[in-house]
Lab assay of single mutants.
Amino acid sequence: RLHIEVEGTELMKKLVEEAKRRNLNVRAKVENGKWIIEID
């Protein structure tokens, strides 16, 4: 499991799109103003 903290929506969208393209499980949520992304 990969755990990433990202500031900025554009970067988050790119990460999520790339993960979906590779058929990975992606969860994204906002915590303290940062995107928290978990990829399995």
Rank of each mutant, 00 (worst) to 15 (best):
A19E: 01
T9M: 13
E10G: 08
E38V: 13
N23W: 09
R21H: 05
V26N: 00
W35N: 01
E5M: 11
K13R: 14
G33L: 04
E31Q: 11
L24P: 00
V6L: 06
G33H: 03
A19M: 15
L15W: 08
V6T: 06
A28E: 02
E5T: 12
R1D: 07
V16S: 03
E17F: 11
L2M: 08
L2K: 07
V26I: 07
N32Y: 05
A28V: 15
L24F: 05
K34L: 07
R1A: 11
M12L: 08
E10S: 08
A28Q: 04
R27I: 11
N32F: 05
V30R: 15
A28T: 12
A19K: 02
N25S: 11
K14D: 04
R21F: 06
K13Y: 10
V6R: 03
E7V: 13
N25K: 13
R21M: 09
E10P: 05
D40A: 08
K20Y: 07
N32W: 03
L2E: 06
I39W: 06
E38A: 06
K34P: 00
T9I: 14
V6F: 08
K13S: 07
K14V: 09
G8E: 12
V6A: 06
E10L: 11
N25D: 04
R21Y: 05
R27Y: 08
K20V: 10
R27D: 02
L24Q: 02
L11V: 09
H3W: 14
I36Q: 02
N23M: 10
R27F: 07
E18V: 09
I39N: 01
E31I: 14
R1P: 10
R27T: 13
I36E: 03
K34Q: 06
K34V: 11
I4W: 11
V30A: 12
E5K: 08
R21L: 07
K34A: 05
I4L: 10
A19R: 01
W35F: 05
V16R: 04
K14W: 14
V6E: 03
R27E: 04
T9R: 11
R21K: 08
I39H: 01
K34E: 03
I37N: 01
L24K: 02
K20F: 10
E5R: 10
G8R: 10
R22G: 02
L11P: 03
K14Y: 10
E31V: 14
V26Y: 07
R27Q: 06
V16C: 12
N32Q: 05
L15R: 01
N32L: 04
W35P: 01
E10R: 10
V30K: 15
W35L: 07
E5V: 15
W35R: 01
M12P: 01
A19N: 01
V16I: 11
E18W: 15
N23Q: 07
E7M: 12
M12T: 02
I36W: 03
E10M: 10
V16M: 10
W35M: 04
T9V: 13
R22V: 05
E10Q: 09
N23A: 06
E10T: 07
R22H: 09
V30F: 15
E7K: 10
R27K: 08
E10K: 12
E18G: 05
E38L: 08
L2V: 12
E31P: 00
L2T: 07
A28I: 15
G8A: 12
V26A: 04
I36Y: 06
A19Q: 02
L15H: 02
I37V: 08
K14A: 11
E10V: 07
N25Q: 10
I39T: 02
E7F: 14
V16G: 02
E38F: 11
V26W: 12
M12G: 03
K29E: 05
E38S: 09
V30W: 15
K14T: 06
V16P: 00
V30Y: 15
G33W: 04
R22P: 00
K29T: 13
V16D: 01
V30H: 15
K29I: 11
I4R: 04
W35K: 00
R27M: 06
I37P: 00
D40W: 15
A28G: 03
E31Y: 09
R27L: 06
H3S: 12
K34I: 13
L2R: 09
H3P: 07
E17S: 09
E18T: 06
L2S: 05
R1N: 08
N23F: 13
K14N: 05
V6Y: 06
H3V: 15
R1K: 12
G8F: 13
V26D: 00
G8P: 05
E5S: 11
K14I: 12
V26K: 01
H3Q: 12
G8K: 11
K34R: 14
V16A: 03
R27W: 09
N25A: 10
I39F: 06
N25M: 12
L11G: 05
I39Y: 04
L15F: 09
L24A: 02
H3T: 15
A19I: 08
I39S: 02
K29H: 15
G8S: 15
K34H: 10
E5P: 06
D40Q: 09
I39P: 00
H3Y: 14
E10H: 09
R22S: 04
L15T: 03
N23P: 01
D40F: 15
I4Y: 11
A28F: 14
I4E: 03
E18D: 09
N32M: 03
I39G: 02
R1W: 14
N23D: 03
T9N: 10
K29R: 15
E10A: 11
L15Y: 08
D40S: 13
I36D: 01
E7R: 12
E31D: 06
